[in-house]
Computed example of a mutant assay.
Amino acid sequence: MIRCTFEAGDATAARKAASQHMNNAIQRVEQADPAFWQQAGGQLARPLVSGLSHRS
Rank of each mutant, 00 (worst) to 15 (best):
M22F: 09
F36G: 10
G9E: 00
M1W: 02
A40C: 03
R28W: 02
R3Q: 12
A18Q: 05
S53P: 01
P34H: 05
T12E: 13
L44P: 04
L44I: 12
L48P: 09
A35I: 08
H21K: 14
A18V: 06
A18W: 01
A13I: 00
N23Q: 10
R15S: 09
G51F: 00
H21T: 06
H54S: 11
M1I: 02
P47R: 12
A25R: 11
T5W: 06
S50R: 14
V29K: 09
Q27R: 12
G51R: 04
G51E: 01
A32Q: 10
V29F: 06
A32Y: 00
T5V: 05
M22P: 00
A13S: 13
R3S: 10
K16P: 00
H54N: 11
G41C: 09
G42P: 13
A45P: 07
G9C: 05
L48H: 08
G41N: 12
L48W: 02
Q39K: 12
A32N: 04
A11Y: 07
P47T: 01
G42D: 04
E30C: 15
T5R: 10
C4A: 13
P47F: 02
S56C: 06
I2T: 07
N23R: 14
E30T: 11
A14F: 02
V29W: 03
D33R: 15
S56P: 15
Q39P: 03
R28T: 06
R28N: 12
F36Y: 15
F6P: 00
A25T: 09
H54L: 09
N23M: 08
A45H: 07
L52I: 15
G9T: 01
R46A: 13
A14M: 11
A17F: 00
P34C: 08
T5P: 02
T5L: 10
R55H: 03
I26K: 14
K16S: 04
Q20G: 05
N23P: 05
L44V: 12
E7L: 15
Q31L: 14
H54R: 14
V49N: 11
F6K: 11
I2A: 10
I2D: 03
G41R: 09
L44D: 06
A35F: 06
Q38T: 10
